[in-house]
Deep mutational scan, measured.
Amino acid sequence: MFYPNSPQTSPQLTQIPYGQQYAMMQRQIQQPYHPFATTEPQARLYPYHYQGPIQQEQGGFITQQSTAASPQYVQMRVTPVDQSIMSGYPNQTANGSSSSSFNYNIHPQQQQQQQQQQQQLRHHAMPVGSVPLQDDRYRKQLIVNYLAPDVTSTDLHELFSRFGELDGARIIYDKQTNMSKGYGFVYFCHAEDAKEAVERMSGYEFHGKWLKVGYSTNPLNIVPSNSSPYVHAGSRGAAG
C-alpha cells in the first residue's frame, strides 16, 4: 500500500523548493479562506456584503464582478436614472436638479381664491374633541361614552347635575331594538360647569363602566337656548 506522503511516492527534499517541504498533501497545500485577509477597505468593513468592485458596462447597466450573493443577503441591482424623465418638472436647472418651490404660472386672482378656499376649509374642519370658538353652545354640550346598558337618562342627569344647572341629558337608544347604544349627551347651562365635568368625570366608574367624557361637536345635538329642557323620564321611549 502506498500513501500520498510515503517515501516511495514523495520526491527528495532537495528537489522541493524551500517553504513547501512540509506541504505535501493536497489539504495542506490548499490555503484556508480568510474573509478579512484583503487589501480593499470595503471588504474589511463589510465582509458579507462586499463582492468586489463595481464596473460600468456598455448599455448603462451596473453589474458586479463577483458571483451571486448568499441567500441570506439580498443584493440590489441599481440602474442609472434617465434624465429625460425629470425634464417635465418646473424650475429645473441645466444640471438636472430642481428647486423646492414650484411655479405653475397661476393667475394671481386664482391663487388668492385657492388660498381663501383653504382658509375656509381649515375654519370649518374641526378635529374630534375640539371646541370651536365662534359658538358658545359647543362648550356646553358633552358626550358621555361607555355607558352601561342599564343607565337611563334620569341617572345621567343626576350624575352630572352636581356640577351645575343642566339644560338636559339623554341616552341614545336603538330604534329597532330599543336598547341603549352605550353613549349619551349632557347639556349644561354654563360653559364653566361643562369644563369642570369634563375634567372630573373622564375615567369615572359608573355602573361598572369607566366613562369617557368630552365635548360634543355635532351641531345636530345642540340644544337651542330658547327651547324647553328635555324630559328626564326613566322610560326608554321618552328618553330616546
Rank of each mutant, 00 (worst) to 15 (best):
P224H: 14
S66I: 12
G60K: 04
P108E: 12
Y3Q: 04
Q20Y: 15
S98A: 13
A194N: 02
G168F: 02
S216M: 00
R122I: 14
P219C: 00
N145I: 00
M179E: 06
F36D: 06
F102N: 03
D135P: 05
Q176C: 11
L147H: 11
I16S: 12
T177G: 01
D135N: 05
D136M: 02
Y183H: 00
A43Y: 15
L156C: 04
F2S: 02
R236F: 01
S130Y: 14
L45Q: 07
A68L: 10
L45D: 06
A191V: 05
P229H: 14
V186F: 09
Q15R: 08
Q134T: 08
N221F: 14
P219M: 00
V223C: 06
G52L: 14
S6G: 14
L133W: 13
Y187P: 00
Y204T: 05
M24E: 03
K209E: 00
Y50P: 04
I143E: 00
T154V: 06
S84E: 13
S180I: 02
M201N: 01
Q12M: 11
T14Y: 06
K181H: 01
P11E: 07
Q31E: 11
G234K: 09
H157Y: 08
P17N: 05
D136A: 07
S228K: 08
S101V: 13
T217D: 01
Y18G: 12
L142T: 02
C189Q: 14
Q31P: 09
Y3L: 03
P11M: 07
Q113S: 10
G88V: 11
F160A: 02
Y146G: 01
Q120T: 12
L142S: 01
T63P: 09
A37T: 11
S100K: 06
T93E: 13
C189H: 15
H124R: 08
H232I: 11
Q176E: 12
S153G: 11
G184Y: 03
H207W: 01
F163R: 05
Y215D: 00
T177D: 07
R137T: 01
Q72H: 06
S228I: 09
S202T: 10
E40F: 10
E57K: 03
P41F: 10
N221H: 13
S98T: 04
S153C: 11
Y104S: 01
D150C: 08
N145E: 00
P11T: 08
V151L: 06
M86Q: 03
T79R: 07
L166Y: 05
L142A: 02
L45H: 08
P229D: 03
V223Y: 14
Q115W: 15
Q55H: 13
S228N: 12
D193F: 01
S101L: 13
V213F: 00
T14E: 14
T67W: 15
S216L: 00
R27G: 14
S99Y: 14
L133I: 11
N145A: 02
H124I: 08
G214L: 01
Y183S: 00
D82R: 08
T9N: 11
K195L: 08
Q117R: 10
S228R: 11
R122Y: 09
L156S: 09
I85M: 10
L159H: 02
Q21K: 02
R44F: 15
Y46T: 07
V128E: 10
R139H: 08
Y18H: 06
V74H: 05
I62N: 07
V186E: 00
Q109G: 13
G208S: 07
A69S: 12
D150V: 05
M179T: 07
E40R: 03
S97D: 13
G59A: 09
F163L: 04
G60T: 07
G203L: 01
P229F: 12
Y138A: 03
L121E: 06
I62H: 06
M201F: 02
K175E: 01
S227E: 07
M24I: 14
Q42K: 04
R44G: 09
